[in-house]
Each structure stands twice: as structure tokens, then as C-alpha cells.
Amino acid sequence: MASTIVEARGVTKDFGTVQAVKGVDLSIAPGELYGLIGHNGAGKSTLFKMMLGLIPISTGEIRIDGEPVNGPRFRETRRKIGYLPENVVLYDNLTGLETLYFFADLKAVPRRECTGLLDKVGLAHAAGRRVREYSKGMRQRLGFAQALLGTPRLLFLDEPTTGLDPGAIRDFYRILRELKGEGVTMVLTSHILAEIQERVDRLAIMEGGLIRATGTVQTLREAMNLPLTLEIAGGAGLAEQVGRVLEGMAIESIEEAGSVLHIRLPREAKMPALARLATLGDTMRDLRVREPSLEDVFFGYRNG
């Protein structure tokens, strides 16, 4: 197996006079759980479709497991790929099990795998019901089961948790963790940044047809040098005492929300500030350090 399973070099995509993707380089290692984030029109679905060979690449090259997308041997490569499209709509007139049979046949996967997969995504009870009667979440689970047919080595998941309730989202990521344990590479997009940030190994932020940044959530935070927030709860007079001990430090802002103080300060001021706050003793009931969220990082890149 190659050291990168997905490799994009100088990829562009023109639609008439509009350039939707403007030169993307990307490499994803085997076994990685990779997030692609960006708002609508950032070019991430176009990039996704080019990686899957659904639309031709204007310039540049994408290789999946060493094989150029839509090259002569890509048909075989497809057997290793699972894909869950956004808002998947399957065939209303078939039952869940029949739907999987159809896709299993096309992927040349034995039909006996299907029942187990329905069980894995929590649809065993509805295997014999027509998809017409499925809820949105159930359709999404069925789409996911379809993507897992044939134990793919690489999964492309486009907004996979849309329409799932919190319990189902937890189940979904539990399955992703299991797959990661088996060495499966996964590329997923999501607009729910809070959901993705604790779960992906690395991510790419796309904006205006370009990848603005790649890395782990932590390296992106540090690269952006976004301020941290200290949240301090305490009794009466807290604000004045905190103001006194932090005097002369490069504090960005102090806001009072009920009995909690929110102090925004630069990353490098964190440790000195904590040392001074420790002298307050019992006046402080609780202290939390809040790292910038992926949202903050994301909007930082968009606006910066």
C-alpha cells in the first residue's frame, strides 16, 4: 500500500468561466480520519466529486491508492471505495435489504454480508420494510450500510450525520472508530464543526476553491494564534480582585456574565495569568480554560 491513499496535485476545476477549485494539493495517509470543512460554494463537494471520478479534473491529478482517478485500472480501485452522498435518496419501492442486495450485486459482494451490515447500522428490525416508509435518519443509516458493503479501505462520507438524532450520531462515530481500528481511511465533510473537531485526525479548511490550511485542530489553533478564554466563577467582589491581580497584563477583554467572568487573553499570557490568579485563593470557586473552537479557527481563516 502506498504511503498516501489519497493524493491530489495542483487540482483545478473550471465550470465555464468560473473556477470552482483553484489548485488544490492534498495528501491523506492510510488509516486517517480526515475532515474537509468549508461553507457552501467553497469547492469541497466539487473536490469530493473529482476524487470519486464523478466529474473530470480540469488540470492536475488525483491518485487513489496510487491509481489515477478514471485511469485504466480505476474500475478495480472503485471496489475498495465506499461512498455516502449527501442527502442520499435510494429506491422507495425496494425494501432496505433489497436495496443493499442491489448495491452488493453491483459491487460483486456476496449478498450474505447485507443482513450483518443492516444490523451494524441499527436497521435489522426494518430490513423487510420498504424504504418509502423509512425516516430521514433511517435512510441515512441505509446509505451508510451501502457505503460499507465489501469492506472498503477508503470511505468518502459527505455530510454523513445530516438528519441523525444525537444518539444516532454517537452510534455513527462509534462505527467510524471501529473502522479506524481496522485501518480504514475516511474522508468526511461536515458543517457541524463542533461535532467533527473531537473526532478527526486532521482536517483541511476550504475557502474560495483553495485549501487555506491543513493540520490537526490543535496545530490550526496554534497557527492562528487565537486568544483563549478563561472562565472564572466566584463570589462577590471577584471582578475587582481579578482586575487587580491581572493589572498590566495583555488582556484582550473581561466580560461578566452572571457570576462568571470571561477573560480573553493571548495564548502566551495563559501561564503567567494562571499563576497570578492562583493567589486569589478561595475567592475563585472554579476556573476553566476554553480553547478556541473549530468554529473560531474556521472563521479566523475565512476572515483572515
Binding site: K49, L52, G53, L54, R75, R78, E86, V88, V89, F103
Partner: peptide, 14 residues
């Protein structure tokens, strides 16, 4: 229109 065409075309079928 249903969106299933994209899915079909990612399978090993021309």
C-alpha cells in the same frame, strides 16, 4: 434528480 446517479457512478459500473 434523486441523487442516486452519483452513487451508482462511484460503483464499479461504467
Amino acid at each position: 434528480e434523486r441523487g442516486s446517479l452519483d452513487l451508482l457512478l462511484t460503483l464499479p459500473i461504467t
